[in-house]
């Protein structure tokens, strides 16, 4: 599996160290508050698990599932919620946990949707951030890694649902996704 990578961007050790740093910031910022971590399935699950365990404050966790659907042939690519939150977030501090923030369209959709439920606050924490690809402004409060505009996999990030279980983060070889 690792041989399919052109380059390792961050090793397992580097990832764990950085997550601990970000977890420290979050623990400090949200101490004494009612925090719920909301992971977007499936990619964010790996990051969520490590992050939650590194926090020094008690938190709730929940999951959001998204799926693409086509309301008509002319418009594939829009999304809807396939698994909603189990927790009522009204009055709570919500931290959306993402594996990657790229163009930002889906996250904007999620933020708008969650905002309607009147949480005390919403913020975004992403494992990797591709700020250079952004189409809409997204308030990313915490980001573990800024990455170049390359095809990355590992630690939850996939290509065709594969490679999520890589413990490092790396650039996928071109011949894999162009074959």
């Amino acid at each position: 599996m690792i041989e399919d990578l052109e380059k390792i961007l961050f090793t397992e050790e580097e990832i764990h160290r950085r997550i601990k740093e970000v977890a420290g910031e979050i623990s400090s910022d949200y101490r004494g508050r009612d925090l719920v971590l909301v992971a977007v399935l499936k990619g964010a699950v790996f990051f969520m698990t490590h992050l939650a365990q590194a926090l020094s404050i008690p938190v709730r966790i929940d999951f959001l599932g998204i799926e693409s659907f086509s309301p008509g042939r002319a418009l594939p690519g829009v999304v809807r919620i396939s698994k909603d939150l189990d927790i009522a977030i009204q009055g709570m501090d919500v931290l959306i946990i993402e594996d990657i923030v790229d163009m930002g369209l889906t996250l904007r959709y999620l933020l708008n949707m969650l905002q309607e439920r009147h949480p005390h606050s919403t913020a975004v924490c992403t494992f990797v951030n591709k700020a250079t690809r952004r189409l809409v402004d997204i308030p990313v409060k915490y980001s573990c890694f800024e990455i170049p505009d390359r095809f990355v996999v590992g630690f939850g990030l996939d290509y065709g649902q594969l490679y999520r279980n890589l413990t490092c983060l790396g650039i996928l070889k071109k011949e894999i996704y162009q074959s």
């Binding site: 998204i66 799926e67 693409s68 659907f69 086509s70 309301p71 008509g72 042939r73 594939p76 690519g77 999304v79 790229d102 163009m103 369209l105 889906t106 065709g160 649902q161």
Partner: peptide
């Protein structure tokens, strides 16, 4: 294509039908 397929289930999806 990423926008279209990022959250699409791993099966062929009929347009007009939920994946």
């Amino acid at each position: 294509e990423d926008l279209i397929f990022k959250y699409t289930a791993r099966k062929l999806v009929n347009p007009g039908e939920v994946s």
